[in-house]
């Protein structure tokens, strides 16, 4: 089955982002297709590559990045949510004359059309917030 997952929650603030990660892993483990991850609102912080966590703690952003890269998952961070929260890829950082890209390159910065597309083309869309 084709799944898409929408993540509204920032990492560490609530359990939801972590739940979404565990769910995404299980979707893949069971051989389903993960059509798209869509990070929206505070959820875009999950794509930040500038996080540093204590050694005995999970780095959720890095775990998302590992999962996305390992399985070649189509992952999107909502552009309007991301820009105002300082989660930028190199293209956006250059465009706005800000030095550093803060987003992992494994996720694409794109608009809500990608969410609508996921709703249309997935058999199941699951929200975590």
């Amino acid at each position: 089955m084709k799944f898409s997952i929408v993540i509204y929650a920032a990492p560490y603030s609530s359990e939801a982002a972590h739940s979404a990660l565990r769910f995404a892993r299980s979707v893949i483990d069971q051989g389903h297709e993960l059509y798209r991850l869509f990070f929206f609102g505070d959820g875009v912080h999950n794509a930040s590559q500038l996080a540093v966590v204590a050694q005995d703690e999970n780095n959720l952003q890095q775990q998302w990045n590992d999962l996305i890269e390992k399985h070649g998952i189509d992952s999107v961070i909502c552009v309007s949510s991301a820009l105002r929260r300082g989660v930028l890829n190199q293209t956006e950082a250059n465009r706005h004359d800000l030095g550093t890209a803060s987003a992992y390159t494994s996720s694409e910065v794109a608009g809500l059309g990608q969410l609508v597309d996921a709703a249309i083309h997935s058999d199941r869309l699951v929200n975590f917030g």
Binding site: M1, F3, Y8, A16, R22, F23, S26, V27, D29, Q30, H32, R124, L125, V126, N127, F128, G129
Partner: peptide, 19 residues
Amino acid sequence: DTARFVKLCCEHDKIVSWF
């Protein structure tokens, strides 16, 4: 468990999340 959560999603037509 989470694996069964995924299966439940398949068994139902859609998922409504309350948060």
